[in-house]
Write a protein that binds this DNA or RNA. Structure first.
Lengths: 206, 206
DNA sequence: GTCTATATGGGGATAGAC
DNA sequence: GTCTATCCCCATATAGAC
């Protein structure tokens, strides 16, 4: 028993360090993007040496994959935790706002739109694909339901809606609005929400 | 006189080669992004050696800056050439469609959203800034006019509309729609147009 | 498992011949 | 102005001591 707890403790600290590494990676990725961060950056940020980093993750790519896997897992968990009373449109809206707040708080953009390289190795990672597909299927069902309720544009195919929706979570407009527009985070979230669902065109008077 | 024509001819071939280099750079940038292309790639693509490349552009960054400068110039020219009969909303829509078609045809995305690095050195290039600002101011006036006509959402600030508009020209949804959605180019343009101006939400019956 | 020190390779940039 | 050949930095990844 004491042997087991010892092992478990060891595993626990290992897990904690791994979390710290992923946190640092996430933050750096959000700031500089894949190509500009170095393994030294990550090691320094987490207070570790580079070789120790490689004990946890066997390559830079795998490190990034795990960071993205964790992000998708968080999104899945967020969706799951939404109250049953929420309608399909409200679920989509809530998840979008969550993703935008994550980004504004220094987290990762949801979609690996940044680099063709990153997208290439992510879409070859079964661990990532599995989760991304799960999320995609969940949201596809939500979109179908929202259309049936007359809450989403029924003239748009589901995939057009979904890809546009994903794109909004990593929309560069967010950074420009913060940088040049000087809006606070919640105002940005509100505007992005508005643009995403109602578009730029004139809205009908209610 | 013959001396002058000789010089002029020399300049002309020089210019032609420069155009070829920029064409190749544009194509490669669109395919792989800044960080993944090498100066060897560009040199090979245009059938030149690397040192010759450096006779034309003194660094990789400057090469990319010039490619982007040319793109913005083309956008400015396109705007200028639009018939006077077009209203402000139609001008915005036409320019968006142009930008999307350029991208779908293997051209550059309009906004340097791809990489923090690229954005950094672009926004420090006076040549680029000058043109980007000019385009921005032109479009700002068009947006104001469109709002006055009741064609754009008057409840959105101009910069929110403009940054969202720019973002649509480099929207990753375009690539996903082509890759996974299997739509042809014109269908993608139409859908992007629709999403941009009318949003994802249900549209009112007319 | 953690470090110091190092191997390895790639790619931006240039020297120097023609 | 164009090439061949080269420099040299930097970042990924590892060897080997503790």
């Amino acid at each position: 028993m004491s042997f087991l707890t010892k092992l478990s403790f060891k595993d626990q600290t290992f897990k904690l360090r791994e979390t710290a590494i992923l946190d640092a990676t996430t933050k750096l990725l959000a700031e500089k993007g894949f190509d500009l961060i170095t393994m030294d950056d990550v090691a320094d940020a987490v207070g570790l040496s580079k070789p120790s980093l490689y004990k946890h993750f066997k390559s830079k790519e795998e490190l990034v994959i795990e960071a993205m896997v964790r992000l998708v897992d968080e999104a899945l968990a967020y969706l799951e935790k939404l109250p049953d009373t929420l309608g399909p449109l409200e679920r989509l809206q809530s998840l979008l706002e969550w993703a935008l707040r994550v980004r504004l708080g220094g987290g990762l953009p949801f979609l690996p739109s940044t680099s063709a390289h990153v997208r290439a190795f992510l879409t070859q990672s079964p661990r990532y694909i599995l989760r991304a597909l799960k999320l995609h299927r969940l949201l596809d069902a939500v979109v179908t339901e929202a259309k049936r309720n007359g809450e989403l544009a029924s003239e748009l195919p589901n995939d057009v809606i979904l890809y546009s929706y994903y794109a909004r979570t990593c929309d560069p407009a967010v950074e420009y609005l913060r940088l040049y527009g000087k809006y606070d985070d919640e105002t940005i979230v509100a505007h992005m929400h508005s643009v995403c669902f109602a578009g730029l065109g004139a809205r009908p008077n209610r």
